[in-house]
Simulated scan of single mutants.
Amino acid sequence: MPENYKIAIVGAASLRGKELNETLNDSVFSSAEFLLMDDESALGQLETVGDEVTFIQRIEPDAFRGVDFVFFASDEEITRKHWQSAQKAGASIIDMSYALESTPGVLLRAPWVQDWNAAPDLKTTTVSPAHPAAFVLALLLKRAQTVASVVSAAATVMEPASEYGRSALDELHQQTVGLLSFQSLPKQMYDAQVAFNVVPSLGEAARVSLMASEARIRRHYAHLAEAMLPDAMIQLLHVPVFHGYGISLAISFDEPVTLDHLETALGGEHVEVVLSDSDAPSNLSSAGQSDVLVRVRTADGTELATKHFWVWMVADNLKLAALNALACAQELRFLRPQGKVQ
């Protein structure tokens, strides 16, 4: 029997919102009634929901009445403005904007990594899906330590422009065109040149903060690790690509491990280990993929057993965020049987 939930996506016109819409329509929630909402600038836009076309609506005070799930794929300001209205209406809230991650009672989740001991219960109204880079690192290190004890781990996370929305994408594109045509560069979003450039920080007037993003990844990884996973040093770089995370992870074990053994341990659900050098994982090959693509190499480049390895992983950042939000909603779904508001 289909479960006829009512689902609202706030920030439906955003990159995250569009990806989430597609992901939900390919999931157990495909038969739900969807409400697409956003701020004034997106009102009236047409979006496809399954086989139907619908308009993006204004977020009214009573917009969440009778809604089972509200996904906030908006910016932080919109989430903070409207989430309590959704909570008062009795909806389960999945906050993809990170606006509520430090709010008391909000549960930080990555169901692919965490077990049911930390799962939502009947008192849980709001869940914040963990940062994609944090839960990918947690997933890979959780599997790595089944081979041998991990004594050190250091990750460099390479972040794409789409992580900061359409405005960041547009500015990267405009900067690229401007440089090729010897024109001045727009810097409203980044306050720095990001086209053809790799940067660890942005200008003082930037609308986004790499330091804040890096701190969030560290914070979320530490929460997911919960003393069960190894400590990991993490640095964040912004790279001149539109989509897709690239993460370079250095792992050292307490005893020698074979390459085949580690590859076997890392592969499985949600992770595809690529063995061919001619088809090495890249942000282009990860586009639209549900799995994390991984390539493993020994630190010294040989095939001999060793304690030290490089793991290169790539993932579609928007797809991964949507899949984690979906997994969080599926946990909450068991608390709302048959779409009845509790």
Rank of each mutant, 00 (worst) to 15 (best):
N117P: 01
V208S: 08
M228K: 09
L24V: 11
V239R: 03
A133T: 14
N4Y: 09
R297D: 14
A119E: 15
T298K: 07
H238M: 07
W116R: 12
V274W: 04
V10W: 03
A42H: 03
L122I: 12
G50S: 13
Y98L: 00
K319E: 13
A110H: 00
R297S: 15
G267P: 00
K319V: 14
R333S: 11
A299Y: 12
L35D: 14
D68W: 01
L108Q: 01
V292A: 10
A321L: 12
L137Q: 04
D62V: 10
H261F: 09
L140C: 02
S181V: 12
G17I: 05
V177H: 06
K307S: 13
A154W: 04
K88P: 02
P200H: 11
A327S: 10
L237C: 01
I56P: 01
V157M: 02
I217F: 01
N117F: 08
E47I: 01
R16D: 06
S282F: 10
T54G: 05
A32V: 05
G268H: 02
Q193H: 10
R333A: 12
S209R: 09
L15I: 01
G268N: 03
E171F: 09
G203L: 08
N21R: 04
G203I: 07
F55E: 15
A232K: 05
F34M: 09
P132A: 10
L36V: 08
R295G: 02
T126W: 03
A118E: 14
T258H: 03
V150Q: 07
V341T: 06
S285I: 10
A119I: 15
V151K: 12
E101I: 06
G339P: 00
G50Y: 09
T258S: 13
V177P: 02
Q338W: 11
K319R: 13
A265D: 07
G268F: 01
F34S: 05
R336C: 06
S286F: 07
Q174N: 05
H243P: 06
S152E: 15
A99T: 04
G301D: 15
T23F: 00
L122G: 07
S128L: 05
G268K: 00
S282V: 11
I78Q: 07
L224F: 06
I251S: 02
M158P: 01
F182R: 07
Q87F: 08
M37K: 03
A205C: 09
T156C: 00
P337C: 11
A148V: 11
E303C: 13
S31R: 04
R216M: 14
Q289A: 14
N283V: 15
I78M: 11
M1W: 12
Q87C: 12
H308K: 05
V147M: 06
D260F: 00
I247K: 01
D38S: 12
N324M: 08
Q330L: 09
S27C: 08
T258D: 11
A13S: 15
S282I: 08
T306E: 11
L35C: 13
E214Q: 15
Y190G: 06
F69L: 13
V150S: 07
A89K: 00
T124D: 14
A206L: 06
A222G: 03
V151T: 15
V271E: 04
F196C: 06
S282E: 06
F253T: 00
M96C: 13
P132E: 04
L185P: 04
T124P: 12
G165N: 09
A329M: 07
V67I: 15
